[in-house]
Each structure stands twice: as C-alpha cells, then as structure tokens.
Simulated assay, not measured.
Amino acid sequence: MAYSNVLFIDNLLTKICIMLGIFKRLTLLLRAHIDQLSWQAVMLAILAHMLVTWGLLLIANEQALTSFSTYFYYYTVTTSTVGYGDFSPTSELGRWVVALIQIPFGLALFGVLLGKTGQTVTYLIRRAMTGDKNFAHSNNHIIIFGWHDTRTKKMIDYILADTKRTDRRILLAVTEQMEHPFLTNENVDFARLTSFTDLEELERVAINRADKIIIDGQDDNQTFTTALRISRLVKSECHISAHFLDETKVDMLLEHCQNVECSSAKSAEILVRSMQDPGSSRVQEELLSTLHGDTQFSLAIPSGCDEMEFGTLFHHFKHDYNAILLGVAHNLSAQNMDLNPPLDYKVNAGDILHYIALERVLTNEVDWQSLAK
C-alpha cells in the first residue's frame, strides 16, 4: 500500500514537471511571436476582430449591443474578462458568436496586447536606464559631458536651483558603463556614448542644437579632445564651458577654440586670499552656488539698445533688483572683461553684464530704452 502511494506521487510529480516544461516552452514560443509582432499588426488584428464580431452581432439582430458607444464599451469589458454583465447577447445566434468568436479570439488578442504593452514599457525604461535612447530631436538643451559622482550631482543641483533660468532639459552624456543616475529626475536625460569625439554619437545627443555645454571629462586629455572636437560642431550662440586641472591645457585650447570658456583649479589663489583676507573662500562659495544666498549671474544687453553708462545701470540694478553690477564683458567667454569700470563707462548692445543678486534678472524685466536716455 505504501509502495503504491509512493509510485502514485512519483507519477504525479513527473506529470507536473512535464506540464511545467510544456507551459514554459509555450510561454517562450508566445513571447517570441509577440516580439516579432509590430504594434501595427496587433492593432489591425484587434480592429478586425472588433469589426467581425460587430458584423456577426448585427446579423444576429443584437440591436442593444451594436450602437457605436455601447458596442465599444461592451466589447472592452467582455474581451478584457471584466464582464460587468450589464450588456449581453439575448439571441441564440448572438450567444454562439460570443462563445465561439468574441471571447476565445478576444482573450488571445487581449493577452497579446498586454504582453506587447509590457514589453514596450520595459524596453523604454531599459533604454532610458542604459543610455541607449536617441536624443537627436532635442533642441536648446544643456549637455554635460563627463561623470564625477559628487561633482556632477552638485552641478545639476546648481542648474536646477536657478528658478528663473530658461527652461532647458539637461542631457548627461557619459562613456562609463553605468545606468541613469538621475532616473527619478524628470529634468535630466541620460546618454551613454562610446566616445565624446565620434560624430555619430555626437549627433545622437543633438550637439548642433545644444544651447549650453559643460565638459568635465575623466581627465584633462578627454576634456581637451572633446572641446576641440565639438567647438566646430555647435551653433554660433552655444556657450561651452570646460574644466581643467592643468592650466597649460587652458592656454593650448584657447589658441584653437575661441568659443570655449575654460576654468581650472584655483586652489593656490584661494588659499592665499583666505590667508590674507579671511572669509574670501566663503565669498567665492556664495557667489558660485545657486542653492543659498546671493549668486553671480550674467545678462546680455539685447540688440537694438542705445548706448548706456555703467553708472546708470549700476544705480538702476541696485535700486530695482537689489543687485550689484560687477563688470562688463564683450563676449561669452569674457576674456576681456572690465571689472568695476568707472561710472561713465559706455555700455552697448551685445555687451554682457555680470552682477550679484538673490535671483536672476531677466532681459524682459529691464526697461532698456529708459536707461539709454
């Protein structure tokens, strides 16, 4: 008796294993077919099934089910197996249509639709996470080339903390094998490139339509070659900022690329200033951070404005915006900036004002014509 029970259980387990194997193979087969199906094919099949079912119900004289709004509702709740029961066929032919045509084929199509939807959502999330998405359609965006765990996060925080900035999406481009570090931040996109100098990869991040670019490579060589490569690919009004540790690289780059603003580590200068004038390092930190306190901003004087005096602008900015003008630059790289110029210094359209304020002053907030009088 005990032996027969053991034999029965053994046979049962064997059959269960066989059934699970068959189910697994069917699942893999179905998934393979779903992978091959396009969205157009799935939607056409569903539409064809809806029309065939509707036509057969019309032939069965199911008038309560065949009006457009009623039929769409009835078809959806029945095929998706929700089945509220408020609508159902009343004729014998109508029941046969539902039993043999609508429910079996509808359930199959509904399963395919769910599988295709899940597959598409997973694919899109995976592409966003791995950085394989194509951003060639982007326009007037900010690109950050390079990844440094703490520094890059701070840069993005500083950009987003400027509440009155022009609303541009941020695209983080890296060459490291990593996933999207800001997946929950809707303002930041992510692209993983094979190289920062490959033309096809640069086209994938819409380099020719970017508005602002930060280059912060893994080392000075990567930063140098990236800046050298993209400086000729960007639009004329695009501003490029590059960070170097070695100041000699800055001089070399500026010989070839006039549209790149370079920054380098100023630790020696800051240490000396802090020693001679205590608190200097804190002033530097406050001026650079948009997270708290007053910050340094810039504002380009729009074209068409008449000549103005620096003193007039200085008093206007202090009185109306509680902002202090620091100086005037004549191009985006600010290589020939005039800091603290005399009050009668002439300022013209196209010049760039650098100032300290609690928040950014926008061009349309300034009455330029009255200041030129």
Rank of each mutant, 00 (worst) to 15 (best):
N5K: 14
D10I: 11
N11Y: 03
L12H: 07
K15Y: 01
L20Y: 13
L20W: 14
G21F: 03
I22A: 06
L28N: 12
L29I: 11
L29G: 06
L29D: 02
A32N: 15
H33A: 15
I34H: 03
L37A: 08
W39P: 10
V42G: 02
M43R: 06
M43L: 15
A45Q: 11
T53E: 01
G55I: 02
L56M: 15
L56W: 10
L57F: 03
L57E: 04
F68G: 07
S69K: 05
S69Q: 08
T70E: 09
Y71K: 04
Y74Q: 02
Y75S: 06
G85L: 02
P89M: 05
E92D: 14
L93Y: 10
L93N: 09
G94N: 08
V97A: 09
A99W: 14
I101R: 06
I101P: 02
Q102R: 00
F105K: 01
L114H: 01
T117H: 06
G118P: 05
T120N: 03
I125M: 12
T130Y: 12
D132S: 11
F135E: 05
F135K: 00
A136F: 05
N139V: 12
H141C: 06
I143Y: 07
G146K: 10
K153E: 09
D157I: 00
A161C: 13
A161S: 14
D162H: 09
R165E: 02
I170S: 08
V174T: 12
E179N: 14
H180T: 09
P181E: 05
F182I: 03
T184Y: 00
N185Q: 15
N187P: 05
V188P: 07
A191P: 05
R192A: 09
S195D: 08
T197V: 13
L199Q: 08
L202F: 06
R209K: 07
I214R: 10
G217I: 01
Q222H: 07
T223F: 04
T223L: 01
F224R: 04
T225I: 14
I230F: 02
L233S: 03
V234S: 03
K235T: 08
C238S: 04
S241E: 13
H243L: 14
K249Q: 15
K249E: 11
L253W: 07
L254H: 12
H256D: 03
Q258I: 00
S263D: 05
A265Q: 13
A268W: 02
I270E: 09
L271Y: 04
S281R: 01
R282M: 14
L288P: 00
L288K: 14
T290A: 13
L291D: 02
L291A: 10
Q296E: 13
Q296T: 11
P302L: 02
T312Y: 03
H316T: 05
F317E: 12
D320S: 15
L325E: 03
A329S: 14
P342T: 14
D344H: 13
D344M: 08
N348V: 05
G350A: 05
G350V: 06
I352V: 15
L353I: 11
L353T: 05
H354I: 11
Y355E: 00
Y355G: 08
A357P: 07
D367S: 13
Q369L: 12
S370C: 04
S370D: 10
K373E: 11
